[in-house]
């Protein structure tokens, strides 16, 4: 009986650790780029997220700065992956890799100067965004920004609509 319980617990822990290991798109889909010398990788762990109050968002409108600080408050991790080598190729590759059943496209922007941006969100069953992912690609650079945490869609909408 003890053996049975032990095995069940081990199976559960293995399953949970497997899921935990992939809670962000960069790790899930772009892990082969992380050790690539052409890419710059930056990670901010949860211990730094209590610094949101110190964010200097001067130059922004007060309301916008306030909303951004409010969004940052609920974040846990931030990952950034950038490169200036073959940015267009990586942008197309990134778009192809993202699983659209996991990630909902919030916005696709293609400007006249061919700067492409895609903003995606992974939500839980309560419609709370658990990851906000930004993919941008232009002639000069490619960037992936992944915010992990609890991101309220209301707050994101406020940000979009605040200067209308």
């Amino acid at each position: 009986m003890k053996l049975k319980t032990g095995l069940t617990i081990i199976c559960f822990l293995v399953a949970v650790s497997g899921l935990m290991a992939q809670n962000n798109a960069i790790e899930k889909y772009f892990n082969q780029y992380i050790d690539d010398e052409n890419f710059t990788v930056v990670y901010i762990s949860p211990r730094f997220f209590n610094l949101f109050e110190k964010l200097d968002l001067s130059g922004m409108e007060d309301e916008e700065a306030q909303i951004l600080a409010d969004i940052a408050k609920d974040m846990k991790e931030l990952r950034v992956l950038t490169t200036d080598v073959k940015p267009r190729k990586y942008y197309e590759e990134a778009k192809a890799k993202i699983n659209t059943k996991d990630y909902e496209i919030l916005m696709t922007v293609r400007s006249k100067d061919k700067d492409n941006v895609e903003i995606l969100a992974k939500s839980d069953e309560y419609n709370t965004i658990r990851e906000l992912l930004l993919i941008s690609g232009s002639d000069t650079d490619f960037a992936l920004i992944s915010f992990v945490g609890t991101i309220s869609m209301d707050k994101v909408s406020k940000l979009i609509n605040q200067d209308k």
Partner: peptide
């Protein structure tokens, strides 16, 4: 703080641009 600012500004700008 610098990275967080950059990431938030970029996201905010792109959301609004869209």
């Amino acid at each position: 703080i610098k990275v967080m600012q950059m990431a938030l500004r970029k996201t905010s700008t792109e959301l609004k641009k869209g």
